[in-house]
Every structure is written in structure tokens, then in C-alpha cells.
Write a protein that binds this DNA or RNA. Structure first.
Lengths: 228, 228
DNA sequence: AATAAATGATAGTAATACTATTATATTAGC
DNA sequence: GCTAATATAATAGTATTACTATCATTTATT
């Protein structure tokens, strides 16, 4: 799988940056190190001054790439969901059987990312943790509707659409494919968070994965005779 | 129901405040108006200076009640989950039949709060919206583990426990009662948010409620013969 | 009326989230 | 190899936030 990735670039809405960070060494290191630092400090304590110090660059130079840290978070998470969509499509495209296809999709979305694919300066393992801990902060804002109109959440929505389409194919009678897709996407992040911080609120742990829990959930919900 | 509430007070972990806001008029108006303003401005733009101006009081006086706005958010959401637990217990205590009991519990947790119970200075309709939009910010922090040890999330955990217990009673063989309870709690907030801001990601709307979706989900998941 | 407690007014600090300006380094075209 | 353009760095400055400290005044208690 790795080799094919070499030639692929994840597209991100270009309104999310002032200057494309992929277009220069500094830009790439802003993205690379912001992922490391946001993971270490959390979104609130992370800022451009600290990032500048760490990469040996000037705060003002970072502002030439990203308007502010909110936009940077949107960029990072958009990249992540775009990457996830690619992973999903790649992993499922040759599966014809609807159940197996959906099952694989759920696995791709709910698994813990454990190895960096190394095809770019972006570490997906670290980025996965940022998504778990910070993603909801990117849309739980007063600006969400405007930003949605600008297409800032497009990659997430595309992914959700693909998943709900697979649900529809598997069980055309099920009435809530979009809601279920959202529950899988949101629920996976939430279960990963709970297993790390609120273990009493979940059965998930080292042995029982969010994948296992959510796979069981989805296939018990779907294809029932009493979808009423 | 209303009348009984008159004599009840929702208890909140007293480490969440410096001085009990229930103990004075100023304290109550801090809580009351912070709910209004946090709803209007969102958590990020809300601050103690603006709150002080609005209630005609001094910023420094507010700091005598709450250390900072993060603690205030924890206070408000703890109150909400404590109130929700009370509502849940009250609404289900006389139901013996496990399915009906669980069904009622799901309704209580997932419904849209539409009327203020008027038994205090706290408007539950507005507070419900704050919980939908801001709750996750209260725990998606680097301090979550310490704060959990201090018991700041106790009321949420108690509620989750009650719900998972009802799931266990209804279907003792089901392997993920805690995870499912978390999914109901988190999923309900998420579906309400989606219906307001990302309608393409959910079937929920004015006609189809999150309650309907989640009730269907839970009873399809539970009591299956193939819980494997 | 005396005392304590609560609140208000004012000022000040350190950090954040930028913006603007100018200087210097790097790169690209000729 | 020189020139011009572009990118980055350095410095300074502003408005706002998130407080803390101090002292004055109001309100409640005995």
C-alpha cells in the first residue's frame, strides 16, 4: 500500500491556508512540527510563538502560511479526513460483497492508527491523536455555519457520505444511514478517548477495540427484520 | 413533576467553585446570566469582564465565585448532568419492566429540552444548548485526568452508570453496556448538533428526533440472538 | 453602633493573538 | 554572475485576555 501513496497528495481546501504549506520547506515543517506540538501541549496551550521557537523560525513567518491556529487545526483535520477517505477507498474498492465492504470500512475508520505511513512529513499516528482530542473544537464554534459554507468540512462530509452509502447498499431499508455513519465516526473518536481517560465509561481497552464494539453495533442494528 | 422540584437542589462538586454561587444573589445571577451569555457568544468569546458588565457587577467579584471560565463551564455542565440524573430517576423509578424503563431513560436523555422547569434561576433550555455546543471542551483538555481525580466529572459518570445498568438489566448478555451508554449520551448531543448545523450528516430533523434514531438503534442492538 | 463580610473600583502584570515595518537572505531569470 | 523578485527574519507595537492585588465602600450581623 505504501508505495502507491508516494505519488498521492491529499488535497485540502485552499481557503484554509494563506500560502500552501506543501509549497516550501518551512511550510512543511510548520505542519510537521505543529502536529508534534499540538499533541504535546493540546490545542489551547499551543501557539505560533512557541511553534516558531521550536522550528527556529519567526512567528510572523508562520502567519504567512496560516491565518491563525484555528485555521491550522482545520487544515490538519481536513488533511486527516482526506487521508482517511483515501485509505478507505483504497482498502475497500475491490470488495464487492456489501457486508464485507462495510465491515472493512468500519475497521479503517475505527482502528487505532499505529504506524506512520511515512509518505510525507505528516505523522498519521500523532495526527490521529490530535483528531481524537481536538477535532470537535474545530466545529463547535459560532462560526461553524459560515465555515461550512466555505467548504472547510468538506473532507469529513465526503467520508461520512461514503460510509452512509455503504450502509445503504448493505441495508436499503434502514432508515438512518447518515446518522449511523456519524455515530460510527464520532463514536470511534469518543471510544478511543474514553479508553484513555474514562475507562469506567467503556468496555474498550487493550483487548476490546472500538472496532469490535462498533462492528458489533452496526451489524446488530442493520439487516434486522424489525426496523419498524 | 414541577412541584416536587421546589424542594430539591442539584448538588455540584464544591471544588468547582471558590464560593457557592447558590449562597447569594450575586452568585445566582452569575450562574443565570453566564448561561445566557455563553449561549449567545459561545465559550471562547465569553469572558468574566463581559459577564460583569452585563450583570452590572465587577469582574473581580466574579472571580470570588469561580476561579476561571473553565471551572464555570464544569460547574454548569455538572449541574446539568446532575439535573438530568434527577429527571431520569424521577421519570423511571416506578417503571418495573426493563424495556420500558430503558426506553424512557433514552427518551429523557436524548429529547430536546423545550421548557424551563422554572424551579431555579437556571434555564434548562439554554443550558441544554450549552451542553450540546460546549460540553466536550470541558474534558478535551490536558488536565482531564487530574480533574477527573478531583471528581469534576462525577455527575456525568453517575448518569452514564445508571444508563448502562438499565442496559445490563434489559440484556445481561450484551457485552458493551458502558460503551453503548456513552454512545447514547454522546450520540444524542452530536445528533442535536448535526441537525442544527450539518443536516446532510443526519436523518434527524423536526420530524425525526434523535430520540427516535437512538431508540431504534439501542433496541436493534440489544436482545439479539447473535451478540456473538 | 460596631464589626465583619461582601462587593466594587482601580490598577497592574504577563501572555496571547495578532499587524506593520524594515532588514536580510534565498532563488530564479537573464 | 548580476539583478530583481520573493521568502524569511527581526523588531516593535496594539488590543485583548486572564487574571492578581489593593483599597474603598456598601451591606449584613451582633
Amino acid at each position: 500500500m505504501e508505495e502507491l501513496f508516494q505519488g498521492v497528495r491529499i488535497r485540502v481546501n485552499d481557503k484554509l491556508f494563506v500560502k500552501d504549506p506543501e509549497s516550501s520547506t518551512l511550510g512543511k515543517s510548520i505542519v510537521e512540527i505543529s502536529i508534534v506540538m499540538m499533541g504535546e501541549l493540546g490545542f489551547e496551550k499551543f501557539n505560533f510563538r512557541k511553534l516558531g521557537e521550536r522550528i527556529g523560525s519567526n512567528e510572523s513567518s508562520i502567519y504567512r502560511y496560516f491565518e491563525n491556529k484555528h485555521k491550522l487545526l482545520l487544515y490538519l483535520t481536513s488533511w486527516y479526513w482526506g487521508w482517511m477517505e483515501y485509505q478507505l477507498v483504497f482498502a475497500t474498492h475491490n470488495i464487492a460483497e456489501p457486508k464485507e465492504k462495510l465491515s472493512k470500512a468500519i475497521y479503517m475508520i475505527t482502528r487505532e492508527i499505529k504506524e506512520d505511513s511515512n509518505f510525507s512529513h505528516i505523522n498519521e499516528v500523532l495526527l490521529n491523536n490530535i483528531v481524537i482530542n481536538e477535532y470537535s473544537k474545530s466545529y463547535l464554534t459560532k462560526e461553524v455555519d459560515e465555515e461550512d459554507k466555505e467548504g472547510f468540512f468538506a473532507s469529513y462530509k465526503r467520508l461520512a457520505k461514503r460510509l452512509s452509502d455503504m450502509i445503504r447498499v448493505f441495508d436499503p431499508k434502514y432508515k438512518y444511514p447518515s446518522s449511523l455513519a456519524s455515530t460510527i465516526l464520532g463514536g470511534a473518536l469518543h471510544q478511543h478517548f474514553l479508553k484513555n481517560h474514562f475507562s469506567s465509561l467503556t468496555e474498550c481497552n487493550d483487548k476490546v477495540t472500538p472496532t469490535e464494539y462498533l462492528t458489533n453495533l452496526v451489524f446488530n442494528v442493520l439487516n434486522q427484520n424489525f426496523n419498524d
